[in-house]
């Protein structure tokens, strides 16, 4: 019993980290999963602290990223299963959720997930109107109407498309 007591917390301390989201919730993550994020890996190498506070990632997004990391750290799963998990992971997610995810994966430097999410976003966006993109990304149109008309004229063929979507 004594050994278990001693060993239990010791193993947990060695193998796990606690990650705190910006809303204050804490997640217990295995170290093997955490190090799949290049940023977390660097933090863990630099300091002893097992508590990492992420000030710009919210609960919901962090939970999703951790689910991804844990799945990919699981040696028991085949590459095929991991690939289908990736497909499932992004399918049906709202565009807003994907925006949070791509930003979180960029901050945490989880390259593979960042790619998967960015690709999914591109898939949703590729047939959208320019106005839709500006709205979604909160971008001000900084062209004059003349400059905008000139650009449209130069690449007229790309605009000759009746399938563009605005929703």
């Amino acid at each position: 019993m004594v050994t278990t007591d001693e060993k239990g917390p010791l193993t947990a301390k060695k193998k796990s980290v606690i990650i705190r989201s910006c809303d204050g919730d804490e997640f217990l993550v295995s170290e093997s999963a955490a190090v799949l994020s290049t940023s977390l890996k660097k933090i863990l190498e630099e300091k002893e602290d097992r508590l990492i506070h992420l000030s710009d990632i919210d609960n919901k997004t962090l939970a999703m990223v951790i689910a991804y990391l844990s799945t990919h750290a699981d040696d028991g799963l085949s590459d095929d299963l991991k690939r289908s998990f990736d497909q499932e992971f992004v399918s049906g997610k709202e565009f807003d959720v994907l925006k949070y995810l791509v930003l979180a994966t960029d901050t945490l430097q989880v390259t593979c997930l960042c790619y998967t999410v960015a690709k999914k976003m591109a898939d949703i966006m590729k047939n959208k109107l320019v106005e839709w993109v500006r709205r979604e990304f909160d971008i001000q149109n900084d062209y004059t109407p003349e400059a905008e008309a000139e650009i449209r004229r130069l690449d007229a063929w790309a605009w000759d498309d009746r399938q563009l979507e605005d929703d």
Partner: peptide, 21 residues
């Protein structure tokens, strides 16, 4: 980040998205 992201788009979409800003 924009570069990493835009790389996934087909050329035709990017020609249009030059107009975003």
């Amino acid at each position: 980040l924009l570069t990493e992201f835009l790389i996934f788009f087909p050329a035709k979409s990017l020609i249009r998205f030059q107009l975003v800003s």
